[in-house]
Design a protein around this nucleic acid. Structure first.
Lengths: 262, 262
DNA sequence: CTTGCCCACTCGTCTATACGAGTATGCCTG
DNA sequence: CAGGCATACTCGTATAGACGAGTGGGCAAG
């Protein structure tokens, strides 16, 4: 058992009323913050910390679980505990649905990913008619059934976003919108062709911890929240023509809005 | 020891390869989702679950820690583990800095809170000159020192938001902006009086788990992320005149933006 | 009746141990 | 040299026990 380089981590303060596992977590956190452990680097193993601090293994694990909850580290079975690398974030500008972008005919996700030099991917595409949830129904103006378009977005193989678009059947049924691939410019281009000139969008943003299903779909590490965005698109007649429910891995995104100061 | 009402929770599946503590967490989570345990209600105690499932106490605690990480429950020392109540959320509309609101002369936070029937409060006010961080300096256009205005917002005694505004000294020094109370309409009204007619705002939004300091300041329960919002205000000359760095308890907020579809 | 104490119940912290399962490495065998 | 196996290391899961500390109810003393 190689012992820990001395000086890397301090000692415990037995007189402190701060719990031992918190003291250990504090020291590890500080070492990470100071850059003593860099992104992706392996922390000392549980056994090494047990030796260093003279505590039991569960106490060390307790410390690790604190740091995991903060999203600072992640454990890999059989390998060790590592400082969680911060993946490059995708910036979503508020003009990403501007007509001028749509007219170029490419999906925003693909264009932006290519510009950033990463490999975009869309999978688990599902398009079907279904019963509208109470919330979706309220947003679309009391529709009973909707067309749902589900898809998952990946960057360089990593799932980063899961989105579902809901559209009223009287708008979408029998149109290219109901096809798996709606064609150039996406469903917003099709909506405009169908006479629903888009007027404005409303976006609602929440942040919360993911459900187990979301952890699975987005392969989220522990301590990573999700951003939950609900966008409603309104046409020039003031009708809500689409609701898009998006769940994003919070460590992969920065949302950016530009607001007039009128 | 009163035994658990049968039927409330199921049994373990010994053949499953799902860890026991996950199975228990699953059952509790499902019971909460189905409304068998309501908001604020007490879950069975650790001892009761130990009896019911025939497992050790640490296994039960492990289950609870899963649910805590998901933000579903919170433990109170000496009392029990409770379904975390969802506090009423504050909705922030994208026009909350519109000039017409400012002209009414009241702070947005106070007005909105009163409208919602809750008791607003602002504390730990601090106004001082300091060195600009690298990030703030870059956003304000390479200023070295700034005026920082720090304050914490509370609703009905609960801290929900912690914000710092940074302004270039050549704009703010010696003006009412450098006073603890900048007067009616807040610092944006003062900026306009000083000839900096506001043109637009840029807002950047991130979500992440809180640092220990943020947990303390916002009295956050475990499993509650924060929304980190950085707003930059630009005047008509295109100059960045203020950067506002805000950390919000994610369970207290829904951000709402309205975007034109131009 | 009020005060104060005790006790039962709650979760918090910590130890010690055991076995399982994933990973990496090096050696041994073919 | 290549493949496969043994082994040592990693974290994951689970048990059993101990003591501490916060909470609240009931009982007893004043």
């Amino acid at each position: 058992m190689p012992s820990l380089p001395s000086g890397l981590l301090g000692d415990l303060d037995p007189t402190s009323d701060r719990a031992v596992f918190r003291q250990i977590a504090d020291q590890l956190r500080e070492a990470i913050d100071r850059g003593r452990f860099k992104e992706g680097e392996k922390l000392p193993s549980e056994a090494e910390l047990v030796d260093h601090y003279g505590v039991s293994r569960m106490t060390v694990r307790n410390s690790f679980s604190v740091l995991q909850g903060e999203g600072l580290v992640h454990a890999e079975h059989g390998k060790g505990v590592f400082v969680r690398p911060r993946p490059p974030v995708r910036r979503l500008a508020s003009d990403r649905f501007a007509r001028r972008h749509r007219e170029q005919g490419k999906a925003a996700f693909i264009v932006e990913a290519n510009a950033a030099g990463s490999h975009p991917q869309v999978d688990s595409l599902e398009v079907k008619e279904e019963k509208a949830s109470q919330d979706v129904s309220a947003r679309l103006g009391s529709v009973r059934r909707v067309l749902a378009r589900r898809r998952r977005y990946l960057l360089d193989g990593r799932p980063v976003e899961f989105a579902t678009s809901y559209l009223p059947l009287d708008i979408a049924r029998g149109t290219p919108i109901a096809e798996p691939n709606p064609g150039p410019g996406g469903i917003y281009a099709r909506l405009e062709e169908l006479g629903h000139r888009l007027d404005h969008f409303e976006e609602e943003i929440r942040a919360r911890m993911p459900s187990p299903a979301e952890v699975k779909t987005l392969r989220l590490a522990s301590g990573v929240p999700v951003i939950h965005l609900i966008r409603t698109a309104f046409d020039a007649a003031g009708r809500a023509v689409e609701v898009c429910d998006t769940v994003m891995a919070a460590d992969a995104y920065v949302l950016s809005y530009q607001l007039p100061a009128t």
